[in-house]
Amino acid sequence: MNRRTFLMTTAAAALMPALASATQNYTPGLVDELLAEGKTVFIDFKTDWCTTCAAQERVIGGLLSNNPEYAENIAFVNVDWDNYADDDLSIRLRIPRRSTLVVLKGEEELGRIVAGTSRSQIQALMDTALTAAKA
């Protein structure tokens, strides 16, 4: 294993506990249930083989580790794009591809990132979700 692979694997493994404990895996109807409960929902459309998705996951995990308010106030949902690309949720939200992040509150979409991996961009989306959740 080369050094870069080792470092990326180690960093990802360190962030997994924070991310795993804060997220739910999508099943049909879950997002609608969370929204009906009044929750702000951060949806991550991803696959396990997508490098952009992995980069987004590392950023999200790091932000969750640094600020517990995200996990305390926002419902994080992972949608497996390979299984749910043609699901009602993906179609209704017009999700163009994997590596798409969307924040919803009630009937409103508060923001979206498609294939973006910038820490500042993802943090801004998570901050938007946090602000809405606390309102």
Rank of each mutant, 00 (worst) to 15 (best):
D44V: 11
D44Q: 12
F45A: 02
T47L: 07
C50D: 05
T51I: 12
T52C: 06
C53N: 09
A54N: 11
A54I: 06
A55P: 03
E57D: 11
R58T: 12
I60D: 01
G62R: 07
G62F: 10
G62Y: 02
S65R: 08
N66P: 05
N67G: 02
N67L: 04
P68G: 07
E69C: 09
A75N: 02
F76G: 09
N78V: 13
V79E: 00
V79K: 02
V79C: 02
W81C: 00
D82Q: 11
N83M: 12
Y84W: 13
D88F: 02
L89K: 03
S90H: 06
I91L: 10
I91T: 11
R92H: 08
L93A: 04
R94G: 08
R94S: 14
I95M: 05
P96M: 06
R97E: 15
R98E: 15
R98H: 14
S99K: 07
T100E: 12
L101Q: 05
L101C: 02
V102P: 01
V102E: 02
L104Y: 12
E108I: 15
L110R: 10
L110G: 13
G111N: 11
G111I: 05
G111S: 10
R112G: 13
R112T: 12
I113E: 15
V114Q: 08
A115R: 15
T117A: 09
T117Q: 14
